[in-house]
Write a protein that binds this DNA or RNA. Sequence first.
DNA 1: TCCCTCCTGTACCCGCGGTACAGTTTTCAG
DNA 2: CTGAAAACTGTACCGCGGGTACAGGAGGGA
Lengths: 225, 225
Amino acid sequence: MRKGEETRNRILDVAEAAVLQKGFGGTSIEELIVETGITKSGFFYHFKDKNELAKALLNRYIENDERIYDEIFSRARDLMDDPLQSFLLGLKLLSELLADLPNGHPGCLVATVCYYERLFDREIQETNKNAVLAWRRRFGRMFREIMAVYTPREPVDVDQLADMVSSVLEGGIVLSKTLKEPNTLAEQVLMLRTFVRMLFLPAVESPLAAVRHDQLHGMAGSGQP
Amino acid sequence: MRKGEETRNRILDVAEAAVLQKGFGGTSIEELIVETGITKSGFFYHFKDKNELAKALLNRYIENDERIYDEIFSRARDLMDDPLQSFLLGLKLLSELLADLPNGHPGCLVATVCYYERLFDREIQETNKNAVLAWRRRFGRMFREIMAVYTPREPVDVDQLADMVSSVLEGGIVLSKTLKEPNTLAEQVLMLRTFVRMLFLPAVESPLAAVRHDQLHGMAGSGQP
DNA sequence: TCCCTCCTGTACCCGCGGTACAGTTTTCAG
DNA sequence: CTGAAAACTGTACCGCGGGTACAGGAGGGA
């Protein structure tokens, strides 16, 4: 019972790394069992086919992803009471986390599935769609809190603004992976941060705003020591 | 000679659509020859293996991609003399073009290759990397022209700003495809436009700026009739 | 006429996904 | 300690798809 879970997770670990590098079609079950140190029969004991492996992989990935966002933004919420400052800090923390990944971001399974859609069943595509919608709700909620306090400089749709966060992350991953420049993703997140800050913070004029600006600029610079 | 080129292009057309839907690993040569109405031998006459197909596919895709950007932004350049206004118009034209795609954006081959890297040779990965660098140079050049006239409200790195365009496009495609919402990609491009406008245009105060604001807002709404 | 391009047809190899099923070891509850 | 369920191993087999090898044929231009 306990042992089974552990083996299953080991398979998922190996499979996730392989799938993010080579896609689902490019990952053979053969190589998974070799690297996991299990037999073919053992593999099919845990997953009845590749589709079920994909399902488990995606669900685990999404859960983990959500957990990370929960942690980062709740930590930011604890440190800053203002919703805008808290969100900006969250983006800063996120960019630092991404910059600290030793080999860069390994890739997003949601994107992998997106570019593989036709080979999986409706359920997986639905799961994937829901993951993106969850991002939209998550960041949308944050932007609504911000907008309860701040008026955006330009009229923007909250959902579209929330999607912008997901876009920059997904796109930044693609750029970072393709260029093999781990920093690019972190920089893009900071660029997004600049966007959000500009959108909600008034033109730098008041002493308070000036202080805030220096403070944030200083933080942004401390990303890559 | 002429006939061979035509068949080759037909194969590439079929292959591109299939690969964007199912990835390289998920696309069988069998289905390509069936849909193209050619035999297996015929296929291997044109491409000695799948890697060479991928190479041809990617090169063709990138050329076409570059051509589209050339057209859009040179058209915008003809209509507007100011580099900023020209760039903003270009983004508007791009978002309209994307919104008019009947089934939404089919996907970007650069991203497909990025999520499939390990299965191709160095050359393809290099080509892919160069495509992203070309985007960086293209948009970087535009932003440099803009910065020769306008001072950004916040200090930004030109390359990172240029990458932001690529990020939002790549990320927007992933979101759009996953959600099966064709509009999402176009909206993200307009969101990026808002970012660029805010970054370079002074706070709305002058009558000119006010007019411009209304005008742009009206245009943004006309995207999906 | 001859050669070159552009294919078709046939036959075959192998790796991989997947099935089937019998047997073995490990784990843990009673 | 025992027994049953869980967690595997081993073996054998199927079909599909990528890829190779090669022989040959249609059509067109020099």
